[in-house]
C-alpha cells in the first residue's frame, strides 16, 4: 500500500519535523530568561550578577499580614515560601491584590532584599468557586 513516493514524503517530513522541533527547543532553552515573565525571590537570591538599574519583575505570594499602607506607599512582602523580598509601591493596586494571593511586581531592585515597584499586577490562581463554598472551606480549615 505504501508506495515509494509516500515513503519518500514520510521520511522527508519526519526529518524536517525533527529538525525544527530540535531547533525550536534549543531556541527556547537559550531564551529561557526572556520567556520567564517574572523571577521568584529565590531566583534573585541565587543570581549573583543582577543589574540593579534594569527593570525586572518579581513574582510570588503576598505574605500573610505583611501589607502596610500609609499615605505615600504600600509595603508588602513577596514570598515563594523559601525566600522573601520586601516591596514598596506607590499607586493603585488591582482589585485582586490581597494577602496570600499571587502577585507580580515590576520595578527595580534596590538591594537583594528590597524592591521598588512601579507597577503591580495580580496573578490569579486556577481555582474558581462560588463565595459560599469559600466560606465553608475557610471554616473547615479553622
Amino acid at each position: 500500500m505504501l508506495t515509494k513516493k509516500v515513503k519518500k514524503r514520510v521520511s522527508l517530513l519526519s526529518l524536517v519535523l525533527i529538525l525544527s522541533v530540535i531547533s525550536i527547543f534549543l531556541i527556547l532553552r537559550s531564551l529561557t530568561s526572556n520567556i520567564l515573565y517574572f523571577q521568584s525571590p529565590t531566583d534573585i537570591k541565587n543570581n549573583n550578577d543582577i543589574n540593579f538599574n534594569k527593570k525586572m519583575r518579581v513574582g510570588g505570594m503576598v505574605k500573610k499580614n505583611s501589607i502596610t499602607i500609609n499615605d505615600k506607599e504600600i509595603k508588602f512582602i513577596i514570598t515563594d515560601f523559601d525566600n522573601e523580598l520586601k516591596v514598596s509601591y506607590s499607586g493603585t493596586v488591582p482589585n485582586l491584590f490581597s494577602e496570600e494571593k499571587g502577585v507580580v511586581a515590576e520595578g527595580r531592585l534596590q538591594d537583594k532584599k528590597f524592591f521598588v515597584a512601579d507597577r503591580i499586577l495580580a496573578k490569579h490562581d486556577e481555582n474558581y468557586m462560588p463565595p459560599e463554598l469559600k466560606e465553608i472551606i475557610k471554616k473547615d480549615v479553622k
Binding site: I35, L36, F38, K123, E126, Y128, M129, P130
Partner: peptide, 23 residues
C-alpha cells in the same frame, strides 16, 4: 514550563478540575 502571569490550566484531562461544578 515557565513563570507566566496566566494561571495554570483549571481543567485537566486527567484528574479533578479546579473549577466548581456550578461554574
Amino acid at each position: 514550563w515557565w513563570n507566566t502571569l496566566h494561571q495554570p490550566a483549571s481543567i485537566k484531562i486527567l484528574g479533578a478540575s479546579s473549577i466548581h461544578s456550578s461554574m
